[in-house]
Design a protein around this nucleic acid. Structure first.
Length: 116
DNA sequence: AACATGACGTCGC
DNA sequence: AGCGACGCCATGT
């Protein structure tokens, strides 16, 4: 019998949990979340997992997740796309040119906050 | 079963 | 300093 659980979907669950842990008014990067779950080189996986974020419940604040440059690379996947910027601005985060202003200061590192 | 793609990241030129 | 190409893990066809 298998001692390990083959819950592959667990990957998404972990990602969703990390993103949901992001405080309001803060943002994080795909690479940071990936590292937090152990996939330090799986930044793309985090973004890919976000595909299910729209179907995840409760909803995952994917709008708080941007790339390492602070660019809203995933805003094109939102509906409408401007919703992502609207949500960020509503939380006090300023967005200019599809980029988070003071991203360096608003950056929330799950690995550090969660003491992974 | 294998190939190609993707909401990224890092290295090289 | 800016642009290009490769690598990574998981998913879908």
């Amino acid at each position: 019998m298998k001692t390990e659980n083959s819950n592959k979907e667990n990957i998404y669950e972990v990602i969703f949990e990390i993103v949901r842990l992001v405080p309001r008014g803060r943002v994080t990067s795909y690479g940071a979340v990936a590292a937090a779950i152990g996939l330090k080189s799986g930044a793309r996986l985090v973004g890919y997992a976000m595909h299910a974020a729209g179907t995840a419940k409760p909803k995952v604040p994917a709008h708080r997740v941007v790339n390492s440059k602070g660019l809203l690379t995933g805003k094109h996947h939102f509906q409408p796309q401007e919703k992502m910027q609207q949500l960020l601005e509503k939380e006090g985060i300023k967005v200019k040119n599809d980029a988070v202003v003071d991203f360096n200061k608003l950056f929330w590192d799950p690995v550090k906050e969660l003491s992974i």
